[in-house]
């Protein structure tokens, strides 16, 4: 194996594109090193992107936030503006692993690892986040939900890396929230998860909503029916029941060591309702 830590994105893409064997990007490494340890991966090349300028920065602009792909999740809550605008995203990102893992892991890595149970991904999808993909032939932007192609697979091509995640500016009277179910209080992989991002009008009526579910299908699901259940309501009991039913109906989970089909389906609805309540309160709804 070779270890490279290029100074520019261009160099990084060139290294990855040129490698004939297996090549991997190293940002936080909290998935990559585990897979290497288990013998699941034996890379020929690892490209560390942390020394590339801007990769570990969070920049705020009028259009929102640009988060460098190698920014450790621990840095997200240290940015007061980001935490205020997107508390659901920050909370989701900070549920990954331990404080130790937080010191290394990144949202871009979480996305590229392409696990259906990735914590930050439903929150990013609900928030309408985009990624900036750099390649040898230039850059392109993708919606976060369009990145995963299946379990452990993304749509990124050889020589492409995610350079940054873009979050839109926070709309007035909006709020987001993320909840996951785990058997313990920390250190587990989500058995099922849900993110809700919604906006309300002056009367507390929900005008826009995005609902995303994790760990209930091969990729994170953006559930339009669940959003529809919220829009036009003041999050009354009927809306909550409709939301929960829509969330459960969207689930296509599996039985595995972490949970059952029945459990995931039931709890998806519960989490959707509870996340919506938090998001609604954050938007200023009463």
């Amino acid at each position: 194996m070779r270890y490279e830590s290029p100074a520019t994105t261009k160099e990084a893409c060139a290294l990855l594109a040129k490698e004939k064997g297996s090549a991997f990007v190293l940002a936080g490494g909290t998935d990559l090193l585990v897979k290497m340890k288990a013998g699941m991966l034996e890379p020929d090349l690892v490209v560390d992107i942390k020394r590339i300028k801007g990769m570990r920065e969070i920049r705020k602009s009028a259009s929102g936030f640009v988060i460098g792909a190698a920014t450790p999740n621990a840095a997200l809550s240290e940015n007061a503006a980001l935490l205020k605008a997107w508390p659901g995203v920050v909370e989701a990102a900070q549920l990954i692993g331990s404080k130790q893992v937080q010191g290394r892991c990144t949202m871009a890595g979480n996305l590229c690892n392409a696990s259906p149970a990735a914590d930050s991904v439903p929150a990013l999808v609900a928030a309408g986040a985009k990624v900036v993909v750099a390649g040898t032939k230039g850059k392109r932007k993708l919606a976060v939900e369009d990145v995963p192609a299946g379990v452990g697979r993304t749509v990124l091509k050889r020589g492409e890396i995610i350079e940054a995640i873009e979050l839109p500016a926070k709309k007035a009277k909006s709020g987001d929230a993320y909840l996951r179910f785990i058997p313990r209080t920390e250190m587990d992989i989500a058995v099922v998860s849900c993110a809700v991002n919604l906006s309300i009008d002056g009367k507390g009526v929900i005008t826009a909503a995005r609902v995303a579910l994790g760990a209930v299908a091969p990729t994170v699901l953006l559930v339009k029916e669940a959003a529809k259940a919220l829009i036009g309501s003041k999050l009354d009991d009927a809306a909550k029941a409709k939301l929960a039913a829509a969330a459960s109906a969207a689930c296509r989970p599996i039985d595995d060591k972490r949970g059952t089909v029945e459990f995931r389906t039931d709890v998806a609805g519960v989490l959707a309702r509870r996340a919506a309540e938090i998001a609604y309160a954050r938007a200023g709804g009463k």
Binding site: Y3, L33, Q100
Partner: peptide
Amino acid sequence: VDGRLVCSCLVLGAE
């Protein structure tokens, strides 16, 4: 490492 708590098993020595 540089003020951040990490697991040294999840960091490469090369970094």
